[in-house]
């Protein structure tokens, strides 16, 4: 598998995801600077990492979405290139039109960093094949703008077409308000595009993909990608 991580000014999870993905791949993925006008040839996967691209100025993700490299990301994604967009990456992906909906300020109006439980809603994808359908996993969030919102028609379409990837849930898998850390519509933590080749999610799988850090549930996502795209 050939993979690349995009680096924007203000990205701060680029190294973390490089390490976590590299552990599953057996070698480090490429790092691509935002000003490059084209992605490297023959890529199987692009990661848009977390952080504060452009300091979240204007609106989280809004400026990065117009970076030179994003034009090529969007075009290649339309032709089937797999894209994993984490946290600020998810915000950039919605701003770039790769995924529907928006990420609003958390209902608490505060940044929140903590482990959350997620229910795997789709295990038949390149991102989630190593998880069981309905499995509850634990990985951290760290964001101030992760409150997913979209219009009722789009939500219905996402539900009907199986585009909801993960929902915030209790440790036993119930998706109630108590388990929702940011006010997201329908407890949505992550969504796919229609072809399930683009995944955007607020939680950080790269932050708990190492047992020494107290959890390894993120690892399966990277293993799934390596298995599906190699």
């Amino acid at each position: 598998m050939k993979a690349a991580v995009i680096v924007f000014p203000g990205s701060n999870c680029d190294r973390d995801v490089q390490v976590a993905l590299g552990r599953s791949m057996g070698r480090a993925p490429l790092m691509v600077w935002h000003r490059d006008s084209a992605l490297p040839e023959d890529l199987d996967l692009v990661v848009i990492p977390g952080g504060f691209s452009y300091g979240d100025y204007l609106r989280a993700g809004a400026m990065a979405a117009h970076s030179p490299v994003m034009r090529d990301v969007v075009e290649k994604a339309r032709r089937g290139l797999a894209v994993l967009a984490i946290c600020n990456g998810f915000q950039i992906a919605t701003e770039a039109g790769l995924l529907p909906g928006v990420l609003m300020r958390n209902a608490s109006l505060r940044f929140v960093c903590k482990d959350v439980h997620l229910r795997v809603e789709q295990s038949q994808t390149p991102f989630t094949a190593r998880y069981e359908q309905g499995q509850v996993i634990r990985i951290p969030i760290g964001h101030a703008e992760g409150n997913y919102f979209t219009d009722p028609d789009t939500l219905r379409r996402l539900e009907d077409r199986g585009q909801i990837a993960f929902r915030y849930c209790t440790p036993t898998g119930e998706t109630n308000a108590e388990a929702n850390p940011n006010g997201s519509l329908a407890n949505i933590a992550g969504i796919f595009n229609e072809t399930r080749t683009v995944l955007g999610l607020m939680p950080h799988p790269e932050r708990l993909a190492d047992p020494l850090l107290g959890g390894n549930d993120g690892r399966a996502m990277f293993d799934s990608l390596v298995e599906a795209l190699s």
Binding site: V19, G50, F111, C113, G142, E206
Partner: peptide, 8 residues
């Protein structure tokens, strides 16, 4: 309210 996990 502090990101205590970044840098993994």
């Amino acid at each position: 309210q502090y990101d205590h996990m970044v840098m993994a």
